[in-house]
Design a protein around this nucleic acid. Structure first.
Lengths: 242, 242
DNA sequence: TGCTGGCTGTGATCTTGATCACGGGAGTGA
DNA sequence: TCACTCCCGTGATCAAGATCACAGCCAGCA
């Protein structure tokens, strides 16, 4: 289960090899330099709560590696997953920008490196580097976009089967790189439990289990631990468009 | 049905009496002056489509008076309402900021005055007036906030009854000012049809009809055309918290 | 005056998926 | 090695709400 490669730590934003592909990190050199001096980088184990819904905002987190699930709860304690944040994304931005409590809970799904920037320092940084404002806007836009996707999924997809298929196909956009892959099979890494998938698509755990069982029985999917293989993408896609 | 008062037109942002209470309009004088020179103000009749989902973005609209419903469609043509935009809000911001097509359709629900600002001019304006970036961020934050609310409503509320009650109570936050109001009754103006309410809460028109009928029969609600009276707010609230 | 089209009320039926209940397997720590 | 705790699979039951079908109402209009 542990990854074979040692966990890679990114020391310095300026020399980070991923910087250019990432939503928030690709800043002009002077801004990066300033960012470097106010951030504090840490590695958090799986299951760490970076932000807690309803807590006063302390600052933002920029994900360097790993993933975090953002979720929100109802008064009764039921919860729903808003989205999975990827490296390069900023967490807690809405709270810090508008000076309100965190609007969602962020929990790491894997060991995750993140840069924390305290609220005051970040706001000052924002004032001094106006170009960063645009990046902030883009991250917020991305949040909105994901939220709208989720709304479409919850409100417009007719059946749970369709929603689950849609989710799996979305994952298939970023397939795993494996040496021993049969042609036509798409390997993906699934870090969510069935319970969490259920929270993502707004249904119950049992229904997800049944749906996945269905897909497997039809030969559209193979599951082994956290690694899944999509064995018939076309059929899955057919469900979604219907 | 027509309002007795003549439709009030706001000529000038600098002298606009509502400016201070509004999300986007309360800008520093020099920014306002610049805005004044690039905006073009119009009054649109009810039912005008200001933005169309999927169309390339041409610019943004700032609502001065009136309301607009923002909706999005699935591939099959079913549609869902994302939120109702109020005066002071900016429409089409995500599209213009990220340079992508409009993400939702905006349709006026009443005769509506709005300031249109073309994309290029707005982006230039944004560069030259860094303070505005913060307003943009706040509007985007608001969009996110509403989207998350909607997700909670769609994914976490157990019953349709609850969602409808929640919606009505949200409207009750901005009651109508009427001369002949009985004490304890909250008059509200409802510009949505039952079909649209159904799209808002993610259910069918018939179910909304039945639910409202239920509320009326229980004496919690009185309906006359577009004016409704909430006659028992406490009972409605009871449903929501359960 | 009557007609037309959009909105609303309501009955009957049928499907989906929630919920309860239980067993089984895999990892983990004492 | 044995509990113990998470996950996952699956059966049975049941209710909420989608869908179809139709009728009434009202405003606007010729």
């Amino acid at each position: 289960m542990a990854s074979r490669a040692a966990f890679q730590i990114i020391e310095n934003c300026l020399t980070c090899e991923f910087r250019e592909n990432r939503l928030f990190c690709n800043l002009p050199p002077d801004a990066l330099q300033a960012l470097q001096s106010i951030k504090s980088s840490s590695v958090y184990p799986k299951g760490t709560m970076l932000c807690l819904e309803g807590q006063p905002s302390r600052g933002i987190y920029v994900l360097c590696t790993g993933k975090a699930k953002l979720s929100t709860m109802s008064a009764e304690g039921r919860s729903i997953i808003l989205r999975i944040a990827e490296p390069g994304e900023v967490l807690g931005l809405t709270a810090v920008v508008s000076g309100v409590p965190y609007e969602s809970t962020a929990e790491t799904l894997e060991p995750t490196q993140a840069n924390f920037i305290p609220q005051r320092e970040f706001l000052r940084f924002l004032e001094e580097h106006a170009e960063v404002g645009m990046k902030v806007a883009q991250q917020l836009t991305h949040n909105c976009h994901c939220a709208y996707q989720e709304i479409r999924s919850l409100g417009l997809s007719s059946s749970v089967t369709e929603k689950v298929a849609k989710l799996i196909l979305a994952w298939a956009e970023h397939p795993l790189e494996l040496s021993q892959t049969k042609p036509g099979e798409i390997p993906i890494r699934v870090t969510l439990t069935q319970e969490e998938i259920a929270q993502f698509v707004g249904t119950s755990r049992e229904t997800v289990s049944r749906t996945l069982g269905d897909f497997r029985r039809k030969g559209w999917l193979r599951v082994k631990g956290a690694t899944w293989w999509i064995t018939n993408r076309a059929e899955l896609a057919k469900i979604v468009t219907t």
